[in-house]
Amino acid sequence: MTTDATIEVRGLRKRYGPHLALDGMTFTVRPGQVTGFVGPNGAGKSTTMRVILGLDRADGGSALVGGRPYRSLTHPLRVVGSLLDAGALQPSRTARNHLLWLAHSQGLGAARVDEVLDIVGLASVARRRAGGFSLGMRQRLGIAAALLGDPAAVLLDEPFNGMDPEGIIWTRGVLRSLAAEGRAVLVSSHLMGELQGTADHVVIAGRGRVVADATVADLLAAAAGGRVTVRTTAPGAGAVLAEAGATVTPAGPDALTVSGLAAEEVTGLLGARRVPFSEVSAHRATLEDAYLELTRDAVDFRGAAS
């Protein structure tokens, strides 16, 4: 593993005919973190990854890995491992042979191939044709290919697609451990929820540019907005809390969402005024909530998503 593999994407622009695929895409993927790359289909995530890997040429801007363009790397898979499309293999070749030619292209041998097959749990089917693999098995094979060169940076495009729950949990574990080993990890998904508990940092893309770029902790705090949920059927509850300066909105037949007061203040107030309630809880935001919150105002962006 080479030392620095920070991925720096600066102002990427790319146009396919009338369609503007990238419109100033800018973000940084840092070592030791899982950076989630989220956005609806067509937001420019895959195009950005292809540009980073030197597969597509951008009309403007730059993408550097450890300060260098990908195409200038001698053995690129030893610096950046990637999985763009798990189906991108010739079906008549065995899993092991698929990794073997890749290894040979990087000056690596069969021993490393067997190591990564073990890591992804495909050792027992290594000599079977990859064409017969399920999508989940192909994703594992693709991850094996990404790990082949023991790279300092790893790029995975939609690795959760087609995986069963066990596969998803396994993939999350792999991503966490890669980051823990100090690697820069960029993982895209069109479902924010898939990245909960996995990503440290999230880059949200829409219409070819970055809509939000923040740590997961900040995103969740912002989305929660200090709100409190109160379970009560008492008719006076809303009025009592509003008097104290809170903003109260009904959230179903027996619940109120309260903002502007901490949970302890809410319990204190309701208790003092003898208003019955069954539960007071601080609102826990999910990444999904944060995502919706951030993209709600971007009408343009929602139109683009559909």
């Binding site: 890997l53 030197g54 195409r71 499309d85 890749l102 290919a145």
Partner: peptide, 9 residues
Amino acid sequence: RVTLAAIPR
């Protein structure tokens, strides 16, 4: 794409 990512030249 896998080939060209492995051998960019």
